[in-house]
Amino acid sequence: MTDNLEQLIKEAVEKALEGDMDAVNNIEDRVTRSKAKAALVKAKREAAKEETEANPDENSNDSSDSKQDKTTNEHIAELLIQQFPGDINKELSSQEHIQIQSKKWLVISTFLRDDPSCLFDSLQCITGVDLGEESDLEVRYNLHSMTHRHAVEIRISCPRNKAKVPSVESIWRIGDWFERETYDMYGIEFEGHRDLKRILLPEDWEGWPLRKDYEVQETYHGIVVQKVKEGWE
């Protein structure tokens, strides 16, 4: 009897370590279930200890292989810092993105498109982000190269009240429509854009919808905007 129970507990703990808690929760007998849960906690603690013991080895490997483990973003960040010192914000950049100050963005983007080791000839996506009620707005660019097959993400932030970012529509032609959409949703003005106007919402719409502090207008040309719930219970 006890052998069977131990076998049951062991199987349940193994399944739970992989993520399926049902095996432990479905054990009918209360005593056995609590034993299984205790065994699970012990197994998790031991697994965590093994990881920290393995880590010092990985760290020493890291420092010797550091060049190979760097991501594309970090390579390109170093290249940009050599060319444009002072415009790249190294503390805020990370493995996944490069943070840039906005004044020389046009020159940097021309470099990114034309330099032989970068060759980012396609702008995949421009996303506007509202970082929070009291903080800035940010514009994120995802670039991709068809020849070298690598991709980077660039982030530029701007203050909420004076949201101005240089426009890249002369460099990547799709920037035209992407920037109009970001302007429409967030109110970020792109300097140098030839015809910055709303693209998705009507021309006479008020407000910037995707900002976190947006309030919907009551009516539009006499039509009530919000759903009227009269007659509901």
Binding site: L201, P209, V216, I223, V224, V225, Q226, K227, V228
Partner: peptide
């Protein structure tokens, strides 16, 4: 009929064509 799945946060959706 009534705005559909977009009734709740759709600021640009007309909540039912019978309003016009």
């Amino acid at each position: 009929t009534s705005g559909g799945p977009y009734w709740q946060h759709g600021y640009h959706v007309l909540k039912g064509v019978d309003l016009v």
